[in-house]
Nucleic acid binder design. Structure first.
Length: 429
RNA sequence: GGUGGGAUGGCUGAGUGGACGAAAGCGGCGGUCUUGAAAACCGUUAUGGCGUAAGCCAUCGUGGGUUCGAAUCCUACUCCCACCGCCA
């Protein structure tokens, strides 16, 4: 979330940001409640100061074995009043916080103002778009032909848009996961994490999925009495990994911290039906290797660039053509200040598919999850910056892989870098 | 799932209604001493909020309650530890 003080002092900039992002939030009410809360608080605290003082006097009287009955009777009324005012302040503050949680991050200055995907900024392209001397098959035909993905039975077991990898398809998933993890841990200095695949409500709130996007998550283990203990299937490893340090103060010399994690990702994709859903493009459960960085504010933008390179290197190693675009204001994720998408080329689809979002959240998530660091000994703690990038999501890489390396007979070549992970296999089928 | 024990500052740990934001020790930082270091000694060492400021307020796992006053009493919950049961 944004700093309440920042909003107070930059109300028009925040209003403009909401306009640029096409998001509504009740800023006026926020300001009004904030003012009311602070007035109440100041007054209540002065009453408490008085109460504390008189309590000391009562303690003194008791110690001297003197009668304090009269003072105590007087204080009874004050105590009651403080209780009422405090309750009022708490409920006002709760409302302030609730609104605060619905306000997205401020985009970084280089973010183009735009109204749709077409306003994203193309930063670079990598690799030649491959050309073929035969008629290309789309990935789902290749996969079914090789019997490595079973769409029907995936749907039978869990519902539409759940898929089942089989034989060398399952092996390919495992190979890609391991290849990516090895790349990031041995070449890029990341420490591997294997986190829980479920996260509770405070954790989901820390990274910004809640409260606004609850409908996009699979929720289980609902408990009306203790909403905080509700569990959600994670939509990305970003959620558990970023929250590892929630409510902690790190020391400056621990930073930057680089973590990478493989997890399955679960997304209801609510409202996304009918849009690019064929084959592996948009499924409710998919595998992903994620990278998460914790940095100081000074270095986060340099770290953002190297994070992007780390993610790109996966596609480069696999020899898959891609481009990088920078999100415009309406495309930018709720918590992000700046975001690059890496989009891999689908030769049969003749389009680019998003396989990685590479974001700098600045202090937005750190403030929500209360992750701080001490710049130097004795200094006041500050919020760290968090960043993450997929490195990468698997299904769409599999799409590009199957289509890019397909042969006329429906078999698929395995690039050299992946062969050791495929038991030395040079070709599928 | 059952029974019992526990949760206090960076760590260990004392504290069962008023002098407690909290003893003591360890660790950290600064200093004295020393050519330098160690030892010893002295000092210092939580976080957040409100306020221009002085300052005030809050926080002893979390929420609620009792009380003029709660780390301390009551209550619900969460987590940790031990043992039993079940289980990959």
């Amino acid at each position: 979330m944004l700093d309440l003080k920042f909003i107070r002092e930059n109300i028009e900039a925040v209003r403009q940001m909401l306009t640029d992002r096409h998001i509504e939030a009740d800023l006026d009410r926020l300001v009004e409640l904030d003012t009311r809360w602070r007035e109440n608080l100041t007054y209540t605290q002065s009453l408490k100061a008085h109460q504390n003082k008189v309590s000391q006097e009562i303690a003194q009287l008791k110690r001297e074995k003197l009668d304090a009955t009269e003072t105590i009777t007087e204080m009874r009324e004050l105590s009651q009043k403080i209780k009422e005012l405090t309750a009022e302040a708490n409920s006002t503050k709760a409302e302030v916080d609730a609104i605060l949680l619905t306000i997205p991050n401020m985009p970084e200055v280089s973010t183009p103002v735009g109204v749709g995907e077409e306003d994203n900024l193309e930063i670079k392209t990598w690799g030649e778009l491959p050309s073929f001397g035969f008629e290309l098959k789309p990935h789902w035909e290749i996969a079914e032909g090789l019997d490595i993905v079973d769409f029907q039975r995936g749907a039978k077991v869990a519902g539409s848009n759940f898929v089942l990898f089989k034989g060398l398809g399952a092996r390919l998933e495992r190979a890609l996961i391991q290849f990516m993890l090895d790349l990031h841990t041995t070449e890029h200095g990341y420490t591997e994490i294997s986190p829980p695949f479920l996260a509770n409500r405070p954790t989901m709130t820390g990274t910004g999925q809640l409260p606004k996007f609850e409908a996009d998550m699979y929720r289980c283990d609902r408990d009306e009495e203790n909403p905080d203990s509700d569990l959600f299937l994670i939509p990305t490893a970003e959620v558990p990994v970023t929250n590892l340090f929630a409510n902690e103060i790190l020391s400056a010399d621990e930073l930057p911290i680089y973590y990478t994690a493989y997890t399955p990702c679960f997304r209801r994709e609510a409202g996304a039906y009918g849009k690019d859903t064929r084959g592996l493009q948009r499924i409710h459960q998919f595998d992903k290797v994620e990278m998460v960085k914790f940095t100081t504010p000074e270095t986060s933008y340099a770290e953002h660039e190297s994070l992007l390179e780390n993610a790109e290197s996966v596609l480069q190693a696999l020899g898959l053509a891609y481009r990088v675009v920078q999100h415009c204001t309406v495309e930018l994720g709720f918590s992000a200040a700046k975001c690059y998408d890496i989009e891999v080329w689908s030769p049969a689809g003749q389009r680019f598919l998003e396989v990685s979002s590479c974001s700098n959240f600045e202090a937005f998530q750190a403030r929500r999850a209360n992750i701080r660091f001490r710049p130097e000994l004795g200094a006041k703690p500050e919020f760290i910056h968090t960043l993450n990038a997929s490195g990468t999501a698997l299904p769409r890489v599999v799409i590009a892989f199957l289509e890019t390396y397909q042969n006329p007979d429906g078999t698929v070549r395995v690039p050299a870098v992946l062969q050791p992970y495929m038991g030395g296999l040079t070709q599928i089928g």
